[in-house]
């Protein structure tokens, strides 16, 4: 364990000396909450008391998005959207810093002489990536609350909200990102070109899932008639159609996207449930957190096993 501890201390020493860490923190801690606060202010000033606010719904919308709780929740939700998502950007950049840089600066030979226990080196780097990600997420949540507190001085918002539930979702999202970290480390380690590794982390899962969706929409999975008994036994068609439940991205962001349903329900004056279609999945419907946790644990095991196996056998040239 001492080897692991040494690597964690050394890599934290490195991470805090890298400007990239502070750029990410600035984007997540300041830019996103400030933008949300600005939008909340715009909504309040322009729509509050107008014809669209006949039922007083604007106050509710502003409370949902620009209160301390609302902004803290959006700093969890926001990075789970767009492509590549901010979570993946952070994870890929941490992988580039902790793994890609060793290749880029020919540092593996130095690192592995200073600490010859390879499992400790890689495990320490994974720990540091998770700690850095945790620090960034914690900071984002705290910054969101602080900006929301600032907003209470000029917006009709207060501190109410399910803070314990939100903290649990932050913790879950952080834990789910372990699979993304291992995937990013694996890609950046496998590709000799760090930039190519990072781009792969950004787009490969979404590309594979997009190709699947395209195939399913255009060709579809027909029942197989040959060897009918066997394929019926395997229930191949149903299994192929169930693949989206195991998609990397939709499961990875399940904790962060799950509050979106609450927001939509809260601001949806028409009421009703979120549909179970593709849009519904994007809004966090259809995948339960226990299911997503099991799927992400599976991904983490696979990516972790590949990463550690490859790293333990890799010649350092």
């Amino acid at each position: 364990m001492s080897g692991l501890g040494n690597v964690v201390r050394a890599e934290l020493f490195k991470v805090v000396r890298k400007r990239r860490t502070y750029v990410l923190a600035g984007l997540w801690w300041i830019l996103l909450p400030a933008l949300v606060l600005f939008v909340g202010r715009l909504i309040h000033v322009n729509l509050g008391g107008s014809f669209v606010d006949e039922t007083g719904g604007i106050r509710l919308v502003v409370q949902e998005i620009a209160s301390p709780y609302g902004i803290a929740r959006l700093t969890l939700i926001g990075p789970a959207y767009a492509s590549p998502t901010f979570y993946v950007i952070v994870v890929a950049l941490l992988a580039a810093l902790l793994v890609g840089e060793e290749r880029g600066h020919a540092m593996w030979k130095t690192v592995l002489v200073a600490q010859p226990r390879r499992w400790a080196v890689m495990a320490g780097k994974v720990c540091v990536a998770m700690l850095a990600l945790g620090g960034l997420m914690l900071g984002a949540g705290a910054a969101g609350a602080l900006f929301g507190a600032l907003g209470t001085t000029f917006l009709p918002t207060d501190w109410s909200g399910d803070w314990a539930g939100l903290a649990w979702l932050y913790a879950m999202q952080w834990a789910f990102c372990l699979a993304a970290v291992l995937f990013a480390f694996l890609m950046v380690f496998l590709f000799k070109n760090v930039a190519l590794g990072v781009v792969t982390v950004f787009f490969l899962p979404a590309l594979l899932e997009g190709l699947y969706t395209l195939y399913r929409a255009t060709v579809g999975f027909e029942p197989v008639n040959r060897l009918n008994v066997l394929f019926q036994g395997l229930r191949l068609q149903q299994r192929l159609e169930a693949i989206p439940q195991y998609f990397f991205t939709s499961n990875l962001y399940a904790p962060a996207r799950s509050p979106v349903g609450d927001v939509v329900r809260a601001v949806n004056t028409g009421g009703g449930e979120i549909p179970q279609d593709a849009l519904g999945q994007l809004l966090g419907a259809g995948i339960t957190l226990p299911h997503a946790a099991a799927v992400m644990a599976g991904y983490a095991v696979v990516f972790g096993a590949l990463l550690f196996w490859r790293f333990s056998r890799q010649d350092v040239e």
Binding site: G5, N6, H105, A114
Partner: peptide, 29 residues
């Protein structure tokens, strides 16, 4: 218990020389 200099010396260029040594010292323990 081995010290090495193998081929071209490599360092983290954005760190000072002292910080590079401190990083290596932390890594070794």
């Amino acid at each position: 218990e081995v010290g090495t200099m193998i081929e071209e010396p490599s360092f983290y260029p954005y760190m000072t020389g002292r910080d590079n040594l401190r990083h290596a010292a932390l890594l070794h323990g």
